[in-house]
Simulated scan of single mutants.
Amino acid sequence: MEQLFTLDSLFTLLMLVLLQAVLGFDNLLYISLESKKAPAEKQSFVRRIGVGLAIVLRIVLLFALMSLIQYFQNPFASLRDNGIFEFELNVHGLIVLGGGVFIIYTAVKEIWHMMMMNEHEVAQKDVRKGSINTVIFWIVIMNLVFSFDSILSAMALTSHMEYVPQLILMSIAIILGGILMIVLADKVSNFLQKNRMYEVLGLFILLIVGIMLLSEGGHLAHLYLFGNPITPMSKTTFYFVIVVLVLIDIVQGRYQKKLLAEKQHREELLNKTKDSK
Results as ranks from 00 to 15, higher is better:
Met197Gly: 06
Leu157Lys: 13
Ile111Gly: 03
Ala156Tyr: 07
Glu216Cys: 02
Ile211Met: 10
Glu199Gln: 10
Ile132Lys: 03
Ser159Gln: 13
Met155Thr: 02
Gln3Pro: 00
Met161Leu: 15
Phe191Thr: 01
Ser153His: 06
Leu65Cys: 02
Leu94Pro: 07
Phe240Met: 14
Asp126His: 15
Val200Thr: 15
Ile172Val: 15
Ile139Glu: 01
Ile230Leu: 15
Ser32Met: 05
Ile208Gln: 04
Ile242Leu: 13
Ile132Asp: 06
Arg58Phe: 00
Ala40His: 14
Ser9Asp: 04
Met155Gly: 11
Val183Ile: 12
Val209Pro: 02
Asn195Asp: 06
Glu110His: 10
Ala156Ser: 15
Met142Asp: 05
Tyr71Phe: 15
Gly99Ile: 07
Arg266Glu: 11
Val135Leu: 03
Ala221Gly: 06
Leu245Trp: 11
Ser189Phe: 04
Trp138Gln: 11
His160Gly: 09
His219Ile: 00
Glu262Ser: 10
Ala261Met: 11
Ile49Val: 13
Leu206Met: 08
Ile211Cys: 06
Pro165Arg: 12
Phe87Ile: 08
Ile141Lys: 02
Gly130Ser: 06
His113Leu: 13
Ile55Met: 09
Asn27Val: 01
Met161His: 03
Asp186Thr: 00
Gly178Tyr: 01
Ile175Cys: 05
Gln3Cys: 09
Phe25Lys: 05
Lys258Asn: 11
Val56Asp: 02
Glu34Met: 14
Gln70Val: 13
Ala77Phe: 12
Arg196Asn: 11
Asn74Gly: 02
Ser78His: 12
Leu206Lys: 02
Ile248Ser: 08
Gly210Gln: 07
Lys194Phe: 00
Leu19Lys: 08
Val101Gly: 01
Gln252Thr: 11
Met15Cys: 05
Leu167Gln: 13
Val145Phe: 09
Glu41Ile: 01
Lys187Arg: 12
Lys187Met: 05
Val135Tyr: 01
Tyr71Met: 08
Val108Tyr: 10
Leu29Gln: 06
Thr12Tyr: 01
Leu152Val: 03
Ile182Pro: 00
Phe45Asp: 00
Leu203Arg: 05
Ile104Met: 15
Ser67Phe: 13
